[in-house]
């Protein structure tokens, strides 16, 4: 019994030691401690709040989308966050995409359809840099997974702008001071401020609320499978636990035959 326990503990230990090493590797970056913000969707049973997601989409569309692309999200995907087919068609129709060639061999512009992906605000990275003081606004589809600290980091960036840099810090031209950005000098000007967006559902558009909502929306664009993943996981783990317990009982019975 003891040997068995040690074996299992060690197996788990080694797994988590590996995990810990990976964690150490993550911690190697020297950034400010991230804000401790409450999210409804984190945790084992957490799910996305549809009204947060829809407000976050509004923030993305009205603010972020003027510089940032969202290349892995199609308009049709918005059905997953609770928008109706008509709403989605209306969102898509606000954008123009290139199509073709037509029967004359010409490319043409048409209104976007639900099956189209979010068009990038810039034709190419060079154009994006040229319009943004040399900095390239990253695609936001995966941003929550692509940064150490994930959604907390994103929320930190959005809320971490300071009007005046601390004394002795000289900002380069066109840069802003951000408490959470590594090195603190960030090329993106402060994107959100109180009442940057007017919410349709009467939610107060404070800086914190706007940042929260758009962060949740981008958590969804990064992991649209999150809810089904956790739900499936719960079933799978319960099944495995019961299966293993039964097998263990059978194992003891079978081994009891030995003398």
């Amino acid at each position: 019994m003891r040997a068995r326990l040690i074996a299992m503990a060690a197996a788990l230990g080694l797994t988590f030691a590996g995990a810990g090493l990976a964690g150490v590797a993550h911690a190697a970056g020297d950034a400010a401690e991230l804000p401790d913000h409450d999210w409804k969707h984190t945790g084992v049973f957490g799910t996305f709040d549809r009204s947060e997601l829809q407000r976050g989409f509004q923030v993305f569309q009205e603010v972020c989308a003027s510089c940032h692309s969202l290349e892995f999200i199609a308009f049709r995907n918005l059905a997953e966050i609770g928008f109706s087919e008509d709403q989605i068609k209306a969102f898509a129709a606000e954008y123009e995409v290139e199509d073709g060639p037509d029967n004359e061999g010409e490319m043409f512009m048409r209104a976007a359809r639900p099956s189209d992906y979010f068009p990038s605000p810039f034709a190419n990275p060079q154009a994006a840099r040229a319009s943004n003081g040399g900095a390239l606004p990253p695609d936001l589809s995966l941003i929550v997974k692509a940064r150490d600290g994930g959604i907390d980091y994103l929320y930190g960036i959005l809320t971490g702008y300071e009007e005046e840099p601390p004394e002795g810090v000289e900002l380069a031209e066109g840069m802003s001071y951000n408490h959470y950005f590594p090195g603190h000098q960030i090329a993106m000007p402060e994107p959100l401020y109180e009442e940057a967006v007017e919410y349709g559902d009467g939610t107060e558009p404070t800086l914190e609320q706007l940042s929260h909502d758009v962060s949740v929306f981008l958590a969804w664009t990064a992991e649209p499978e999150m809810e089904i993943r956790k739900k499936t996981g719960l079933k799978v783990l319960i099944f495995i636990a019961i299966f293993t317990a039964l097998i263990y009982i059978i194992k003891r019975r079978i081994w009891a035959r030995l003398h």
């Binding site: 299992m8 197996a11 783990l237 495995i240 293993t244």
Partner: peptide, 8 residues
């Protein structure tokens, strides 16, 4: 069973 649980 234990391994699949950890993997899960």
């Amino acid at each position: 069973g234990v391994m699949l649980f950890v993997l899960g």
